[in-house]
């Protein structure tokens, strides 16, 4: 073999080793989580179900949001938000929580913040599957339209944004332990800022649809959540205020917002990876 071939071969092996390591770590977390629990993965449905019950009660019966099939509307945006928040929250402690390993073993540190992303992605996909099955089983067919395809770019942007933030927060938390508290509060705020339990129509109304509304959409998750609602919830009922529940009846609006969200996430990812690479050289020392 020529030298360059050997080098390429080695690089390929190294890349494969990293992916395998990531897979093994995700599998480990799943195993540890569900070991000895009889219901196993079913428990991961418990949290969205509980939220479903509570928010349906509050928003449908008490506040009378007027969104029909509110449960499906809620879950369309909630599942992806939960996955995002779960991954970022877990990534905050991903390096700090593995101090013993980081200080004693040399291994590719990039896998640490990616492990919670994979872990929550597995849960998200299963929850999504359950949601779709339940929708179809109950005869809710609004999702069977070309709008469903919006889920693909939406989940792509969600992934990009999640990974970017995971790199950032996991690295920053090593040096500044305040990060975990900031992240906790920011995620809590994010849940209410994004139109998950209410319709984005309320935001548009309050911001008069102008440049403030555009500013609102600089948050990539707003684009993701509303696109997922268009994809899964799929209908655009008229609310008591006279507005449609969805952000827009078409596609272009979402693609545009997702494009902007994707660019922002991409830039953030570059930043996150740089910060991570810079700070990770000193993890073993600072932990």
């Amino acid at each position: 073999m020529a030298l360059t071939e050997i080098a390429e071969d080695r690089a390929r092996t190294q890349t494969r080793v990293r992916w395998e390591l990531l897979r093994n770590l995700i599998r480990k977390d799943l195993k540890v989580k569900y070991q000895g629990s009889a219901l196993g993965f079913l428990w991961s449905l418990a949290n969205p179900l509980l939220l479903l019950v509570v928010y349906t009660f509050v928003f449908q019966l008490v506040l009378r949001s007027g969104i029909p099939a509110f449960g499906f509307y809620l879950l369309s945006g909630l599942l992806v938000w939960n996955a995002f928040a779960g991954a970022v929250g877990a990534a905050t402690g991903a390096v700090v929580g593995n101090a013993g390993l980081v200080k004693k073993v040399r291994f590719p540190l990039v896998v640490l913040p990616l492990t919670p992303v994979g872990f929550t992605a597995v849960h998200f996909l299963l929850q999504l599957l359950v949601l779709v099955v339940v929708m179809l089983a109950t005869g809710y067919t609004h999702l069977l339209s070309p709008h469903l395809l919006l889920a693909v770019p939406a989940l792509g942007v969600a992934m990009l944004f999640t990974v970017a933030l995971c790199f950032l927060v996991s690295a920053l938390n090593v040096r500044y332990r305040d990060t975990q508290h900031i992240v906790e509060i920011a995620l809590m705020a994010g849940f209410w800022i994004n139109p998950i339990v209410y319709s984005v129509a309320l935001v548009r109304e309050h911001l008069h649809g102008g440049w403030l509304y555009d500013l609102y959409y600089l948050n990539p998750m707003a684009g993701v959540v509303t696109a997922m609602q268009s994809a899964l919830y799929g209908q655009n009922p008229t609310l008591p205020g006279g507005q449609g529940a969805l952000a827009d009846p078409g596609y272009l609006f979402y693609l545009e917002r997702l494009g902007i969200g994707g660019l922002i996430s991409g830039a953030l990812l570059l930043l996150g990876m740089r910060v991570y690479a810079r700070l990770s050289a000193d993890f073993a020392e600072e932990l």
């Binding site: 390591l21 093994n24 480990k28 195993k31 540890v32 013993g100 390993l101 291994f107």
Partner: peptide
């Protein structure tokens, strides 16, 4: 270093080796 008590020796061998 890096062993997880909840997992079996076998699982830990694979995990540790991949680390």
């Amino acid at each position: 270093a890096g062993f997880n008590g909840e997992l079996s020796g076998r699982e830990n061998v694979y995990l540790n080796a991949s680390l």
